[in-house]
Design a protein around this nucleic acid. Structure first.
Lengths: 99, 99
DNA sequence: TAGGTATATCGGGAAAAGTCGATATATATT
DNA sequence: AATATATATCGACTTTTCCCGATATACCTA
């Protein structure tokens, strides 16, 4: 858990938006319904909603995963992403107690 | 309160360090003692401890103030900075509830 | 008002981040 | 094996950040 890297990851409007969307997947990614939400939301859905290029969104997601804010899971040809709730709780705690 | 700007301000080792120092001024800025801690810690003390140039530290502090993480107060020729506790509480809250 | 001290602002060069299109890789289907 | 689809990686270009020295401004004191 490197705070500087985490804050860098959060210093971007689109990435922040993605995280907010992932807070309520059913609401924000209705097209994901036919594949279920059990594993998370796949890159394509997120890319479509973000409106940036496929490569950019893929990089953003892997960055968010690298710093631990989301978890990724490959299922078939899809990679599903979910918000990591514990990471946010830990970050919140850190902000009040350490910074 | 613009989250992206706040996170940008926090995305720097030195700025993060300064905020941590300001959490315990008596401990981290003993030389400030002779002027008291009532108003906060002045730029010179912070600059000396950070080891970066005067201009850089001055800019960092005014950036931290712009996004609301610290409060500044001019007293004579000195500008004193203090951590804004409420801002951190609000940020912590935002991280758990909105992001 | 002249000089000293503390802080702020400006201009710039180097490094990092943002973003893209092109291409590579992994998996699924025929 | 060939093709199609989803995702990842690469190379390039533009914008932003980092950090400095030089200079300006504000305030204090003689």
């Amino acid at each position: 858990m490197d705070p500087v890297e985490i804050f860098k990851a959060l210093s971007n409007k689109t990435r922040l938006q993605i995280l907010q969307w992932l807070k309520e997947p059913e609401l924000n990614f209705p097209e994901q319904a036919e594949f279920g939400y059990g594993n998370g939301v796949c890159v394509g859905q997120i890319q479509k909603k973000a409106g940036l290029s496929q490569s950019t969104v893929s990089e953003y997601l892997s960055l968010l995963q690298k710093v631990g804010l989301v978890k990724a899971q490959r299922v078939g040809q899809w990679t599903y992403y979910v918000r990591d709730k514990e990471a946010f709780a830990a970050l919140s705690e850190l902000i009040e107690t350490k910074i």
